[in-house]
């Protein structure tokens, strides 16, 4: 590998992760403003024009907070848990193509950090890692509410991960490829979007993605009304911020993956690909926020029943239907 391609990779990593972190920061503001709009409030609009500096102020506040470790906590795991949750949340975006290949100085540059041919498997593998941070964080706090939160988290993960994987099988049967770039290239017009071919698969995947991000109606591990803060009760300062950022990075990654798999990724007329990609991602981010502002929370036995008795059979049915259609 020559110096040029190495520096290209580094440049892509820096640009995409910086963009992601920026989106994470402004996702908090976006969510608060949208939720405020839905609830007939103003939302944060005092720090900077339209509250645009609010994420910075929040970050500064969280960074300067005292970092408390509860007595009797397992210090190593307690400090490691936020990192274990945060890092996988950032990794998913590595295989998502954000734009078409770019020809620059006679070189073809793919607009994805790593265009691996098992992209979907990578996403599934990475997505299921994040939950370990939550389980470990709750367990290592040596506190009762976080313990309950982390137990709920493991129950929840078992319930939706199977359906999440199976929901994608139908898509794989249609596209015949694990590579995200390949899947995007197949959806060159709106009629070829996978949402047309896999409507049920999309609905299942969207629900599972919502569950994976631990947000209402699936925010059982933190459920502030029941478990105070759930797994993150004992975390403060930057460690809390890392859990928080992981949640938002997960939402963005989920939106990006939904866009890529079902809505033609960066494909679109007139506007540059990256703009189309962002428009679609923001659309789904809005959807996530809207759901949060509207729905109540599941109870955890209901979530498990929902996962095993509704999502799983539907995912299997989806595979069956896809198979029949493909054979015919």
């Amino acid at each position: 590998m020559d110096i040029l391609s190495l520096s290209l990779i580094v440049a892509k990593v820096v640009v995409i992760f910086a963009g992601l972190m920026l989106m994470v920061a402004y996702m908090t503001l976006f969510e608060r403003r949208i939720v405020a709009f839905i609830q007939g409030r103003k939302g944060p609009n005092r720090v900077g024009p339209q509250g645009l500096l609010q994420p910075l102020a929040d970050a500064l506040k969280l960074l300067s907070k005292e970092d408390v470790t509860p007595a009797g906590a397992n210090k190593i795991i307690f400090n490691l848990a936020p990192v274990i949750t945060f890092v996988p949340a950032l990794l998913t975006i590595a295989v998502v193509p954000v734009a078409d290949n770019l020809i620059l100085f006679g070189r073809e540059i793919s607009m994805v950090i790593s265009d691996i041919n098992i992209g979907i498997l990578f996403i599934l593998a990475i997505a299921s890692l994040g939950v370990y941070g939550i389980i470990l964080g709750g367990w290592s706090s040596n506190s009762k509410y976080p313990l309950l939160g982390s137990l709920r988290s493991s129950a929840q993960m078992v319930s939706y991960e199977v359906a999440l994987g199976l929901a994608l099988v139908g898509l794989l049967m249609v596209s015949g490829s694990f590579s995200l770039s390949e899947i995007v290239h197949q959806q060159s017009s709106i009629l070829e979007w996978n949402i047309i071919k896999q409507p049920l698969g999309f609905v299942l995947f969207a629900i599972c993605a919502l569950a994976e991000s631990n947000r209402i109606p699936f925010d059982l591990p933190e459920a502030e009304a029941e478990l105070v803060g759930g797994y993150n009760t004992e975390f403060s300062g930057i460690k809390f911020a890392m859990f928080f950022m992981a949640e938002y990075a997960n939402i963005i990654a989920s939106s990006a993956v939904i866009t890529t798999l079902y809505f033609g990724g960066w494909q679109g007329p007139i506007l540059p690909p990256i703009v189309w990609f962002l428009i679609k991602v923001v659309f789904f981010l809005f959807g996530f926020v809207w759901v949060r502002a509207t729905l109540p929370r599941f109870r955890y036995d209901q979530l498990m029943r929902f996962g095993w008795l509704v999502l799983l059979p539907l995912a299997l049915l989806n595979i069956l239907i896809t198979g029949i259609v493909l054979v015919l």
Binding site: V35, Q39, G40, A225, R292, A293, T294, L295, P296, R297
Partner: peptide
């Protein structure tokens, strides 16, 4: 009651 069960928006509507 709705806020406890997770439906956050109800709280703001009723307080309005």
């Amino acid at each position: 009651h709705a806020l406890d069960i997770g439906a956050m928006t109800m709280f703001f509507y009723t307080f309005r």
